[in-house]
Computed example of a mutant assay.
Amino acid sequence: MIQTTNKYSKETFIRLNYWYDRIHGLVQEDIDKVNTMVEHIENTRSDRYPRTGDNLFFVSGYGERSRLFFIDAVYGDDIILRDFSRVPFVSRDKEGIKCDMHGGECLLVKAGDVRFK
Results as ranks from 00 to 15, higher is better:
residue 104 G to S: 01
residue 75 Y to H: 13
residue 35 N to W: 00
residue 102 H to F: 13
residue 78 D to F: 04
residue 6 N to V: 12
residue 36 T to K: 15
residue 101 M to I: 09
residue 50 P to V: 12
residue 5 T to K: 15
residue 108 L to Y: 04
residue 5 T to Q: 14
residue 67 R to D: 14
residue 116 F to Y: 15
residue 56 L to F: 04
residue 38 V to C: 00
residue 115 R to E: 15
residue 24 H to N: 14
residue 94 K to M: 04
residue 81 L to I: 05
residue 65 R to D: 08
residue 105 E to N: 03
residue 44 T to H: 15
residue 36 T to F: 12
residue 58 F to R: 06
residue 76 G to F: 04
residue 107 L to M: 15
residue 62 Y to W: 09
residue 2 I to W: 12
residue 99 C to I: 04
residue 52 T to M: 06
residue 80 I to D: 07
residue 115 R to H: 12
residue 100 D to S: 11
residue 21 D to H: 11
residue 47 D to N: 14
residue 103 G to I: 00
residue 58 F to K: 10
residue 56 L to A: 14
residue 100 D to A: 10
residue 100 D to T: 10
residue 44 T to A: 07
residue 30 D to C: 00
residue 88 P to T: 03
residue 51 R to W: 03
residue 93 D to Q: 01
residue 80 I to F: 09
residue 86 R to G: 03
residue 12 T to E: 08
residue 11 E to D: 12
residue 33 K to I: 13
residue 79 I to E: 04
residue 59 V to Q: 13
residue 111 A to Q: 06
residue 38 V to T: 01
residue 35 N to F: 01
residue 99 C to W: 00
residue 40 H to R: 07
residue 19 W to N: 10
residue 113 D to G: 02
residue 47 D to Q: 10
residue 102 H to S: 09
residue 45 R to L: 13
residue 38 V to A: 01
residue 90 V to D: 10
residue 71 I to D: 05
residue 68 L to E: 15
residue 89 F to W: 11
residue 95 E to Y: 07
residue 115 R to I: 13
residue 36 T to C: 05
residue 95 E to L: 13
residue 10 K to F: 00
residue 6 N to M: 09
residue 41 I to T: 04
residue 106 C to H: 02
residue 68 L to T: 15
residue 72 D to Y: 01
residue 5 T to V: 11
residue 84 F to T: 14
residue 1 M to T: 14
residue 76 G to C: 05
residue 63 G to L: 01
residue 65 R to E: 02
residue 13 F to Q: 01
residue 86 R to S: 14
residue 43 N to V: 09
residue 16 L to K: 09
residue 2 I to N: 13
residue 117 K to S: 15
residue 66 S to H: 00
residue 19 W to M: 08
residue 81 L to Q: 08
residue 37 M to T: 04
residue 46 S to H: 03
residue 85 S to N: 12
residue 106 C to V: 09
residue 60 S to C: 09
residue 31 I to P: 06
residue 75 Y to L: 08
residue 7 K to V: 04
residue 23 I to F: 13
residue 10 K to C: 03
residue 14 I to E: 06
residue 82 R to Q: 07
residue 39 E to I: 10
residue 96 G to K: 08
residue 62 Y to N: 14
residue 28 Q to C: 01
residue 80 I to W: 11
residue 106 C to I: 07
residue 8 Y to E: 14
residue 45 R to E: 10
residue 91 S to A: 15
residue 109 V to W: 05
residue 27 V to Q: 09
residue 19 W to P: 01
residue 91 S to Q: 07
residue 11 E to N: 06
residue 49 Y to V: 06
residue 96 G to V: 04
residue 25 G to A: 07
residue 103 G to Y: 00
residue 76 G to I: 00
residue 70 F to V: 07
residue 45 R to C: 12
residue 22 R to P: 02
residue 109 V to G: 02
residue 2 I to P: 06
residue 104 G to C: 00
residue 13 F to I: 03
residue 38 V to M: 03
residue 108 L to Q: 03
residue 82 R to Y: 03
residue 4 T to S: 09
residue 14 I to D: 06
residue 80 I to P: 10
residue 49 Y to L: 08
residue 48 R to L: 11
residue 22 R to Y: 07
residue 12 T to D: 03
residue 35 N to E: 02
residue 38 V to Y: 00
residue 98 K to C: 08
residue 115 R to K: 15
